[in-house]
Write a protein that binds this DNA or RNA. Structure first.
Lengths: 244, 244
DNA sequence: GCGTAGGGATTGTTGAACAATCCTGCAAGA
DNA sequence: TCTTGCAGGATTGTTCAACAATCCCTACGC
């Protein structure tokens, strides 16, 4: 085994070990809560009682509070001092804010692909390919929340092309917050359907290495998506509660 | 008092109240630790002992651990399971990552100023003006760490022009991490001095509403700054320990 | 109707305790 | 000399019970 080969092997083993024992009761509890929130079981505005959840999750109050902190920094919970933790209620201003950041980050990632030193290997696009097919299958089965999930993963993988740990983390937060918004919208089909095909189109542009065109396309794509969510919001007659 | 005036006043009062009782022992402890880290008292690689800090900060272990969590999600501490919390040691890869994000965010903010609906009021640039003068005064007094602090505030205020809460939060994190890097560099003067004048130049372009030129200038500015830090890094012969 | 005090519930914080894990040093063996 | 195995102590992970501080709601007085 070559020396560099041995170093690479050591790194992969270290990564495996880190993945195995990353358990920790707090993170497990956070996983359960995260799913409950993103799947809509805990709607925006809901309060999470400490004593209640300690019984359900079978962890101590301190551990539960650590789980709360984790989710707070993902944007999925907000703390109100001496009043408790709540699922945040996002408003129009948050939609605008989130989409501004999405546009900045995602478009920059795509545009940055053109000047890469080692050209982007086709294999890097495979996860996005899978996401597109999952979305199409879910759409045929009328499972629109699953379409939304696949769409999220598509964009997360898109950001992943930049090989930036911090961009990945930021995007994880942004998309998690976006999910909170989806649950106040009544018509998931109208919301998600148009983007199944647009994701495929975007992917094809990337495969053809037409990065600038893909970036322009994605920019308009995100503008349209933002407009759709804002329109759905105004239809529901929801005012922005983001200053409470 | 006009109605909108009254609303604005209510908001400022609410902000003051929120700042006052944002106490919470955990956050107070986190504040102290944050300062110790960003000012270099706790150098990268240092371990923070729980029992030791409970005595110094006069908080319980549980509260201290909450403070650790807070700082962990700001990137100022890292947890190693069953081994403790450490001040992270950043490497060249982190420099590249951080600067990529800075360029994307800051340049976009400046470029976005051109199409604003209500044109940017001159008063919004005042905080940056103050930062520039503070930096110049500190430089005359040979207080280079203070120059670095003022420079950070300048860029934080620059991002603030976008009125995006999430951009503000992200930038806070990015700049805090950047500070970790500064402490491994021996020559703070060479590091910070060139950018005092460039900040002033940038500000003048903004005051003249030459936003596109300012954006181009800022882009090059950040490229130069990144190159300077990377050069200082390689001089020290530091290899990137970011995979440990 | 409106401001105000009390009571109950919830959160904030503490200290102690125990289990699990890591680090250190030392001895045994090749 | 170098590696291996094993105790011992130290540190972290987690839980529990208790008390203090704060908030929300209701009833009271004006």
């Amino acid at each position: 085994m070559t020396e560099t080969g041995r170093q690479a092997w050591l790194r992969t083993v270290a990564a495996d070990v880190a993945r195995l024992d990353r358990s920790s009761s707090a993170e497990r509890a956070a996983d359960i809560l995260r799913r409950s929130i993103t799947e809509g079981a805990l709607p925006p505005g809901a309060q999470l009682s400490e004593v209640e959840l300690t019984e359900v999750l079978e962890v101590s109050r301190n551990t539960l509070r650590e789980a709360f902190r984790l989710l707070t920094h993902e944007g999925l919970l907000v703390y109100k001092l001496h009043r408790g933790v709540f699922v945040p209620e996002l408003g129009e201003q948050d939609v605008i804010d989130l989409y501004r950041l999405r546009r900045v980050l995602e478009v920059d990632v795509v545009r940055g692909l053109s000047g890469r030193d080692p050209e982007l290997p086709a294999r890097r696009l495979e996860p996005m390919h899978d996401d597109v097919e999952v979305a199409e299958a879910a759409a045929r089965a009328d499972r629109w929340p699953a379409v939304g999930t696949a769409n999220m993963r598509f964009h997360q993988h898109l950001i992943g092309l930049a090989d930036s740990a911090r961009m990945d983390a930021m995007t994880g937060r942004l998309l998690a917050e976006l999910r909170l918004l989806f649950h106040v919208i009544a018509a998931p089909r109208e919301l998600h359907e148009p983007y199944i095909e647009r994701n495929r189109g975007l992917l094809e542009l990337l495969e053809a290495r037409k990065y600038d065109q893909a970036a322009d396309d994605l920019h308009q794509y995100l503008l349209d998506s933002e407009r759709g969510i804002l329109a759905a919001f105004r239809d529901k007659g929801l005012q922005t509660p983001s200053d409470t």
